[in-house]
Simulated assay, not measured.
Amino acid sequence: MTIDAKNILVSYTKNGKKDNTISIINSVDITIVPGKVTVIFGRSGSGKTTLISVLAGLLKPQEGSVLYDDIDLYQQNDDFISDFRSKNIGFIPQGQSLLSNLTIKENILLANNNGNDSDRAEELIELLGLSEREEYLSSQLSGGELRRCAIARALINQPSVVFADEPTGDLDDDNTQIVFELLRQKAKDGAAVVIVTHDESAYNYADIVYRMDGGVLALSDTQK
């Protein structure tokens, strides 16, 4: 599934004054292709998270379009967009998003819309080094364990598109490598994978590299 975003503009008015408009994303064009890992580097506040929120159908831009193949996403109603995301998109958020009263496995399976795919959940739990914590409540986990659980939850449905927002922010070097290799494998299996990150080691797993600064997106001068 190819994503083609054109002329994306996101801004807000400070203190409600139209003459005091702050631009978050400024006329961004980007095409995301299946089978590739696209990495977007940029400082905090550069617009990376806002951009992937727009691409993932979570935030409607003031201007521009986001097409998934021939589907113009923001021309659809909210129910369609929600169902489309559930079936096609895995999103790894930057912050904590798990339910504290559920175990790791329960949190992962909660996102599964293809039935109770316990075997797939077990596979991801093992790949991400969480087997010894499988029956722990999320409230009992460390930041890194919560991050890995969120990654497993995003991948449980075998999505055709994966968006990862700082997926290794809470992880040590070994787990960072595991996560990047898992996302790399998703691309090899045919998914379109988009990673936004500060972590320069992500470059080693990228097919396409962008830099974002002040809401402006540009291809990196050095491509793999």
Rank of each mutant, 00 (worst) to 15 (best):
T2H: 09
A5M: 05
I8C: 06
L9D: 13
S11Y: 09
Y12K: 15
T13D: 14
G16V: 05
G16P: 04
G16A: 10
K17E: 07
K17G: 01
K18I: 04
D19W: 13
N20W: 03
S23Y: 08
S23T: 12
N26R: 07
N26I: 03
S27Y: 00
V33A: 01
V33Q: 05
G35L: 02
V37G: 00
V39D: 09
F41H: 01
F41L: 14
S44R: 01
S44M: 01
T50D: 01
L51E: 04
L51Y: 04
I52A: 13
S53R: 11
V54A: 01
L55I: 05
L58W: 06
L59D: 10
G64N: 14
S65C: 05
D69W: 15
D69I: 09
I71T: 15
D72T: 09
D72V: 06
Y74H: 08
Q76D: 07
Q76N: 08
D83Y: 13
D83S: 12
S86D: 05
K87P: 01
I89S: 14
I89P: 05
G90L: 15
I92E: 11
P93R: 09
Q96L: 08
Q96M: 04
Q96H: 08
L98G: 01
L98E: 00
S100Q: 04
N101V: 01
L102Q: 00
L102P: 00
E106A: 10
A111I: 03
N112E: 04
N112P: 00
N113E: 05
N116H: 03
N116F: 02
S118Q: 07
R120K: 12
A121D: 02
E122S: 10
E122F: 04
E123C: 02
E123R: 08
L124I: 02
L124P: 00
L124Y: 02
E126L: 05
E132T: 14
R133N: 05
E134Q: 11
S139F: 04
S139E: 07
S142P: 00
G144S: 11
R147Q: 12
A150C: 09
A150M: 14
I151L: 04
A154G: 06
I156E: 02
I156L: 02
I156Q: 05
N157M: 07
P159K: 12
P159D: 14
V161D: 02
D170Y: 02
D170P: 00
L171S: 00
D173M: 14
D174F: 05
N175T: 00
T176Y: 04
E181D: 06
L183R: 08
R184I: 08
K186G: 04
K186V: 02
A187E: 09
K188W: 08
D189F: 11
D189Q: 15
A192R: 08
V193M: 09
V194A: 12
I195M: 14
V196Q: 09
V196N: 13
T197H: 09
D199E: 13
E200R: 15
S201V: 15
A202E: 15
N204P: 02
N204A: 12
N204Q: 12
A206V: 08
I208W: 08
I208F: 05
I208A: 09
V209R: 06
M212F: 07
M212C: 10
D213K: 06
L217F: 01
A218Q: 10
A218R: 12
L219G: 15
L219P: 06
T222C: 04
T222P: 00
